[in-house]
Structures are given as C-alpha cells and as structure tokens.
Design a protein around this nucleic acid. Structure first.
Lengths: 246, 246
DNA sequence: CGAGCATTGTTAGCATGCTAACATCTGATG
DNA sequence: CATCAGATGTTAGCATGCTAACAATGCTCG
C-alpha cells in the first residue's frame, strides 16, 4: 500500500537549488558576519578548532576533508559558491570541535558568521530557517549516498557509484539525446573521494572505459553515461564477464 | 587566530537530547499523523517507495539500510524510540524515492505523518522547526563520522572507529573511574555497520581484546575503553607492533 | 535433559586492492 | 626549443580482507 501510487507532491528533482539556504538569502547590508579571503590551498579550519562559526562561500571552491591534508585522509564534501559550510552546530559537534578540516581549493572568499549570531538570525527569519532546514536535508541525503558508496568494497562498484553521485550533483549535460554527462575531475580527486589509491582509480576507470560506460582522455573531461553505468552496476559483480576483448 | 580560544558558547556535549525534535514535541491529540504497527523484521519502506512520509518511532527499534535485507547491503542508521526517521524531504530524495530500506528490528510502533502535513506543522511551529533543524545537524554529523569510519580500509581502524562512534552514541557507562562504556551489539551487527564480514569482525575484535582495549565474552556485553582505544588508533597502523604475547 | 538455534571462534585458500616505481603524454614556462 | 610539472598509464609483488566451512558454546523451549 505504500508503493508508487499517485504522487502526493510534485516530483521536482532539482528543487534543491530553489529551497536550500544560500548566500543570496542573507541580508546584503553586511549586518551579518564578515568576509574573509583565503589563498589557494589555505586552511580554513583544522580538526581541533572550535565549531563556532558558519560560512557562506562567495567565490572559489572549498573542500571539507576528514583530516589534515598531508595525512591519509579523504574528501567529505565539496562546496561551491553561494553555499553554506561548517554549518554543523556546536551542539552536534563532538566536544564542540570540528573533527574535520576545510581548505580553499582555489582562491576563495567566504562570509564568516558566529554561530550564535547565525542561530539568532534564523530564529527571527522563518523563511531562512525553513530553507536552511531543507538544505540540511539535502546534505544528509548526500552524506548517506557517500556512505552507501563506501560500503562497496569492489573497485568498479565504488568508483562507479561515485561517478553516478558526481554526475547527479555537479555534472554538465554533454549530449542531450544520449543522456551523457561531463565531469571535470582528476583521478587524484576521485581517489580521495572514493578512498582508493590513485593508481587503482586509473586502472578501474580504464576498465569502465573499455566497456564504453565512460569516455575520457588526457585533457578531455570525463563523460559518463549514467543510465548504462547504473544498469551495469546493478547487474552485480558476480554477473560480470571479463571484457570480451577478442 | 581561530584555534581553541575562549569558548564563545557553552560546550554541553549531550545537548542533542535537549534540542532535537522528538515525539514528545509533537501534539498529543493525534491531529498529526496516525500510528502504525510493525512486526519483528517487517519492512517499513523499500528503496523504490516514494519518500513522502515522515515517521516518529513510539516503541521498538528501526534500522535504515542501504538496500533490501537479503542483498549485500549494510546499515546506515539505527533509530531509537521517540526519534524521527524517514525525515529526508521529498525534494532531497533522488527522484522523490527512498533509495534506502527501513525495517523494524523488534516489534515496533511509529507515528506516520504525510510530508506536506509535517512541513505545514513546522511552518506554524517555530520551536519545532528549530528543534528539527538541530536534529538534522546531529544526524549529519553522525553521517559524516560514518563516512570517515568507512574511509579506513584496515580492519582494526574501521572497527575501532565504529566502536568509538557507538560508545558515544549509545553507550552505557560501565565503570565511572576507568571510563569504560558497555555496548549491547552482536558481531553480525557490527559487521553490517562497518561493511566487513562477520568472521573478520570476530577476528579483529579478538585482537583488540588481546590488547585489552575492549572486554567481552559470550553473553556478556562489549565493554570499550574509549580513551585507550582512541589513543591506540591515533598511533596509526604503521606504529603498531604485533601483540607482544610472550 | 536433549534438540535446535544463534552466537562466537578458527582456519585454509583465494581474490583483490595497495605500494612503489617507472613510463608516457601534455601544456606551461622561461 | 628545452625543461619542468602535473596527469595518466602500467606493472610486479605484497598485504590483507573475504569466502566457505566447520567447531564450540550457551540459551530456549518442549
């Protein structure tokens, strides 16, 4: 009785863009927070810093990692312009500390707001609070997909699922009819997201390319065919024959 | 400049209990949703079901999994009484579908609320919305910790971190002075959370037991010494000597 | 008590990902 | 053009987790 029946709510997949709280929803008059600038690769916070501020990225790109960049740690999240980051409240942070690290990928600027100030703002702006809450739901969904991706131990499964996630989150449509999506990402970056070695990413991508599930080359972006890839992964590791190359 | 300075906000770790929205915050007069009952092991939703309802668990326990229970899938989240689940809004769900599965672990009862009804309630109850938002922050933090745990490929690291997570989330204090925490969990359950095989969980727990980082036995609960374990894991896999047994 | 069942313990052999090292290719830079 | 840095491609050997199967233990229930 709870299967796909008549949709009770319109199903508009991309509505995340519309409802999540972004920089545009904050007051423009600078009464909230102050802008900070970061150079390429600069640390924004470290694991042992207090989680007492929220940021909204104005320009550039920011990456949230599981730990300091020179350790054996991985990427948790990529933040694009306009979006909030560091938004986990002090209460939810373990011991009030970050337990993660944030770095500017490229030269970046972000509005930094003290947590209590931000919470006060949300309390007095119902719409912003609602939007922020929806944004949190979206983040949580993404985090759960990452978790799901990481539970796959086989390289093709893990990397394949990561690609599907990325095409959904930040893909650029390549061919309308074939439904292909282009990604701008290096093997190194994929390795850090999928928690694999760079070498193994290269090898595994090569296998997917042989099967024509993806296309790429030096200096050309990675083009994914999500539906074929999805179908391939759904078949399960057992059902796969080696590529029948000759 | 952003290191540990004077705390700007009180650091009360357990405040999650106080601020997250639970069943207690909903109106008692049943104007919201209806109670449903589930038998032990019964499916509450499947991956292909529409994500158009929110639940609050009244009694029992519920588990959210990455997929149907007989496949090779794993545990995303455990839900205890009073807490909400299925709370990812339709917008954030991919294509409006669940992409996860929920099962009653034990005989359970839950209030089921249509999503639009719930959103409407939040819109008209500022406090509930705020509490719900904080709850989402907590969930997101937990999800990111799970992700971090899964990026560790070595068995001791992954399982050890899972234990630390569990002691923080649902541990029962065993000895006050030694700071030990007891967990009620089977090797099978640990395997499903850490995405390992059951046999390997047994072996790895055995190693941790040999090092006196944990205690357990048939029919006795798993007792963890979080600080020693934390310290042990922080040393890193390379620094470890084999157990100097004799 | 005895049978059945779930949990924990153990092992051999296999599959697969990682490390490390090096090769190739491309674009940028002086 | 020559050089360099970064990205991709490739391989051999090793480390480690998994599969599968079975043993041992303790609880539950007739």
């Amino acid at each position: 009785m709870r299967k796909n029946q008549v949709p009770e709510l319109p199903n508009h997949g991309a509505c995340g863009q519309l409802v999540a709280l972004t920089l545009q929803h904050l007051p423009r008059d600078r009464e909230l927070g102050a802008t900070r600038r970061y150079g390429r690769g600069e640390e924004i916070w470290a694991p042992e810093d207090r989680a007492d501020r929220v940021y909204f990225l104005k320009t550039g790109q920011v990456v949230i990692r599981t730990g300091k960049i020179h350790g054996r740690d991985f990427v948790l999240q990529l933040i694009e312009a306009e979006h909030p980051f560091g938004e986990l409240c002090c209460c939810s942070a373990i011991g009030g500390l970050r337990h993660s690290a944030a770095y500017a990928v490229t030269e970046s600027a972000a509005v930094e707001i003290a947590l209590n100030e931000f919470v006060q703002y949300l309390k007095t702006h119902q719409g912003a609070l609602m939007a922020f809450m929806f944004g949190m739901c979206i983040r949580l969904t993404e985090a759960q997909r990452s978790t799901e991706m990481l539970t796959h131990r086989a390289a093709e499964a893990r990397l394949g699922r990561l690609l599907l996630q990325l095409t959904a989150a930040r893909g650029r449509v390549e061919t309308k009819d074939a439904g292909e999506v282009a990604l701008q990402v290096s093997h190194q970056e994929l390795a850090e997201m999928a928690a694999m070695s760079r070498a193994h990413v290269t090898v595994t991508l090569g296998k997917l390319r042989q099967r024509s599930l993806i296309r790429y080359g030096r200096n050309r972006s990675l083009v994914v065919n999500p539906s074929s890839l999805e179908q391939y992964l759904a078949r399960g590791p057992r059902a796969r024959n080696p590529v029948s190359g000759v």
